[in-house]
Design a binder for these strands. Structure first.
Lengths: 225, 225
DNA sequence: CCCAGAGTTAATAATAACTTAATATTTAGT
DNA sequence: ACTAAATATTAAGTTATTATTAACTCTGGG
């Protein structure tokens, strides 16, 4: 299977809808997974880390809306594209979906053409470009393998630490405001105190051993050298 | 998501209006965030630093007018475009909005076309070109990296020093009154003595090494060369 | 169940930024 | 050249921001 294939998770309690979606999306080259209720969706989403989730509003265990809210409250899913599926294509549920963080919705019945077009459009519009390997002299950061190498020694960072370092390092010299950092790394729904950033910065400095993050007091942090 | 997408924050207590705006503005390529009451608006505005805020007049917690006033009293939002939304399209609330620092207003009900046209127009009319790199011969000022380079040597200034230098340098030759400087750099609520400016000027001159700030006695300062 | 690691918070310490006040120097007007 | 007013300079005092540490929660794996 293509290494860069987009992963799509389909969540619907009706087997024939799952099959229909799976068929059409596989044909488009997506890597498709399915779930049949809210809880299973959450489990699989966590394991698979899909790029897009097709979420039926009406599902057993947890409704699509609930699942959507739960996913959006976790920073791991802040960039996951969520497409709601609803039989009720009245404004009410449409609204409810988008309000809770969905990126788009489609009303049943679904035409294969509309579905595929919409999903492709979502990817075009929303997906972040895949992060690439960063290399500065004596330090390299690989987001694929999740590894940082400093002077030929491998350093393992925790996820938040890594994301923070990557954010700063992908634009060396540029100052990132604390707000920007919170938005990019934690997402704008999550609320954490300012000291949290400091603590992560400290751990990064500590683990890397070399001083490559500069504090700009009253402003933010930047990566240098 | 486009890295340079304009950020728009929508503040309205009615879910269907939020959704309506979100849908239409997302489709235009804006990066859209929402808030459902006054307090949430202030929180998110601070966090997200949107380029434009669509502000409903009638909201719980704090009204749009209050939010507008509060935002405008903070220097971080002096360039944020504010568009008021009101069901009462009588002159009274229109005036009240503009009086309190809003840049435009739209009366409900809203047509998507009008909305998008108006917002695009506001951006065209009001948005400042991104604070950019200033380059004069032998000196360059980079607000993104928060660094000044003088004859290929990097000089790091503290926040107030930098803001002051940037203010003067972005209009070389133009004299800035002490009052203007206080307003722009310190904001109009903060009260500091006149000597404070002198001290910062001195530090800048000292750090840069070259004399590029001229005193205009009895008037103010200007950047030259 | 317990442990280990990640993530967060809160309290305190440390430090840099900022402001002020006191004194010296410069400038412009007479 | 004298004077008054404005600015320059310096050092010291204050405040704001960040660094550091340790404790606490939460989660998943053994």
């Amino acid at each position: 299977m293509d290494q860069t294939a987009r992963k799509v998770l389909i969540a619907d309690d009706e087997p024939d809808i799952r099959e229909f979606l799976q068929y059409n999306l596989s044909a488009e080259g997506y890597e498709v997974y399915t779930a049949k209720d809210g809880d299973e969706t959450l489990d699989k989403a966590k394991r698979i880390q899909p790029d897009l989730i097709v979420l039926d509003v009406m599902m057993p265990k947890k409704s699509g809306v609930e699942v959507c809210q739960l996913l959006r409250s976790q920073s791991a899913f802040k960039d996951t594209i969520i497409l709601m599926l609803t039989a009720l294509n009245d404004d009410g549920s449409h609204i409810k979906g988008l309000e809770n963080g969905a990126d788009d919705y489609i009303g049943k019945p679904i035409s294969p053409k509309v579905l595929v077009t919409r999903i492709n459009a979502l990817f075009r519009r929303l997906s972040k470009p895949k992060a690439g390997l960063l290399t500065m002299d004596s330090i390299s950061i690989d987001p694929e393998k999740f590894v940082v190498r400093v002077e030929d020694k491998e350093v393992s960072l925790a996820k938040k630490e890594f994301e923070l370092l990557y954010l700063l390092a992908h634009r060396p010299g540029r100052v990132f405001l604390r707000n920007e950092i919170l938005n990019q790394v934690w997402g704008n729904e999550v609320i954490v105190g300012d000291r949290t950033i400091d603590v992560h910065i400290r751990k990064i400095r500590q683990k890397l051993g070399i001083d490559c993050i500069t504090t700009v007091k009253g402003v933010g942090y930047k990566f240098e050298r």
